[in-house]
Computed example of a mutant assay.
Amino acid sequence: MNNKISLFLFTMIGILLLSLSSCKKDDDTAVTTVAVLTTSSITKITDDSIVCGGNITSDGGAAVTARGVCWSTSQQPTIANNKTNDGSGTGSFTSKISGLAINNVYNIRAYASNSIGTAYGQQVSYNAAPTKKELFNQMLSWMCGSFSSKNHADTTVNQYIVDVRLKMAQIWSNRNVGENIYWLYVEQAYASDTNAPYRQRIYKVMMASNGDIYDEVYAIPSPANYLHGYNNTTVFNALTAANLTLKDGCDVAFTWNAAGQYFTGATTGNTCMAVGVPGVSYITSDATLHQTFMTSWDRGYNASGQWTMGPDWPYIFDKVATYPFNASK
């Protein structure tokens, strides 16, 4: 009987020891996971890049072999999208993102990869608003082209809206090198007789150091010599700015409307004086410039400030052709 009890106790002690040994092995086995990290805030913004990064606080028990940031215009970007490669290991790191297109919102997340997988930090966003220089060049590229009000004339009941053709082409691209100054030849004519334009001007389009954009309007000597000059801008090579006559007070100031993604432009007050127009003392000009069309509204006023000339609403000009614009000078 005692032998049976002893055998039973010995067996139970063995089972208990085996169980304890098994539990100990389970406790000693470390669980490996993906890394733990956060995304840094955007700390530096330049004309063509931003600086972000992340901080890896734990490698999850397996070495971090790749880290950086990934970005996309879609939510929750992954390394399948655009990404940087910024070394390995834990701790803080810095990432530089370049080449972001203007007028886009980008979502950014830090990432860290180990043998288990890839982990991500929280998402931060960046609105790639255009720089002042980018806006300036964008406006000029939108201006350069051939415009027509035919569609507006065909669809409106306003008898004063007729088919007009408007051409704007860059000239003198090799002048004012290093300055934010560009020159455009502007020709406007009724579609019924494009060989007899009623307006031929040269615009000097400028951006001030504070980013303000405006243009000055100049009359051309012997304008018939430059008929259809938009087709061959070399005809202006012999002409200089000194040969032009400034239309004083007729400059137009432009403003970027970020919400609507277009430019607005207008003359100021009654400073653009009318010459040789019966019953008109001064003229105002208002315009909007979009990527595929523009509006233009010229109105004349007498000395008492009464509106005496011009249509009831702006002309709408569709852009039917794009002319080249060279911003590199």
Score class of each variant (00 low, 15 high):
2 N>K: 15
4 K>L: 14
5 I>Q: 15
10 F>N: 08
11 T>G: 13
11 T>A: 15
12 M>G: 09
18 L>E: 04
19 S>Y: 15
21 S>Q: 10
22 S>I: 13
23 C>Y: 15
27 D>T: 15
28 D>M: 08
28 D>L: 13
31 V>S: 07
33 T>K: 03
36 V>C: 05
36 V>P: 00
37 L>Y: 06
37 L>S: 04
38 T>Y: 05
39 T>L: 03
41 S>F: 07
44 K>W: 11
46 T>N: 11
46 T>L: 13
48 D>K: 09
50 I>G: 01
51 V>K: 11
52 C>L: 03
53 G>M: 02
54 G>S: 12
55 N>F: 08
55 N>M: 11
63 A>W: 04
64 V>L: 04
68 G>Y: 01
69 V>H: 03
74 S>T: 10
76 Q>V: 12
77 P>C: 12
80 A>C: 11
82 N>A: 07
83 K>I: 02
85 N>P: 05
86 D>Q: 06
89 G>T: 07
90 T>R: 02
90 T>L: 04
90 T>W: 01
93 F>E: 02
98 S>D: 14
98 S>W: 09
104 N>E: 06
105 V>A: 01
106 Y>K: 06
107 N>V: 06
107 N>W: 07
109 R>E: 02
109 R>Y: 01
112 A>L: 06
115 S>G: 07
117 G>A: 06
118 T>G: 01
120 Y>C: 10
121 G>Q: 00
123 Q>C: 03
124 V>Y: 01
126 Y>D: 01
126 Y>E: 05
127 N>M: 07
128 A>P: 01
135 L>S: 03
141 S>R: 04
143 M>N: 02
146 S>E: 13
147 F>R: 01
150 K>Y: 09
150 K>W: 08
152 H>A: 11
152 H>F: 08
153 A>K: 01
158 N>L: 07
163 D>F: 03
165 R>E: 07
166 L>F: 14
172 W>G: 01
173 S>F: 06
174 N>H: 12
176 N>T: 10
177 V>G: 08
177 V>Q: 15
178 G>E: 07
179 E>V: 04
180 N>K: 10
182 Y>D: 02
183 W>M: 10
184 L>E: 00
194 T>I: 14
195 N>I: 11
196 A>C: 09
196 A>R: 07
197 P>A: 05
197 P>D: 10
204 K>W: 04
205 V>Q: 06
207 M>W: 06
208 A>G: 08
213 I>V: 10
214 Y>Q: 10
214 Y>M: 15
215 D>Q: 02
216 E>Y: 13
217 V>T: 06
219 A>T: 11
226 Y>H: 04
228 H>E: 08
228 H>W: 14
228 H>Q: 13
230 Y>M: 03
233 T>A: 14
233 T>F: 13
234 T>C: 05
234 T>K: 04
235 V>Y: 06
239 L>D: 02
243 N>F: 14
244 L>H: 09
247 K>R: 15
250 C>P: 00
264 T>Q: 09
265 G>D: 02
266 A>N: 02
267 T>M: 08
267 T>R: 08
267 T>P: 04
269 G>L: 12
272 C>Q: 00
274 A>K: 02
279 G>A: 04
280 V>F: 01
281 S>D: 12
282 Y>V: 10
284 T>F: 08
287 A>M: 15
288 T>S: 12
290 H>N: 12
293 F>Q: 07
297 W>P: 00
301 Y>F: 15
304 S>A: 15
310 G>F: 03
311 P>G: 03
320 V>Q: 00
320 V>N: 03
321 A>G: 10
326 N>D: 12
328 S>F: 13
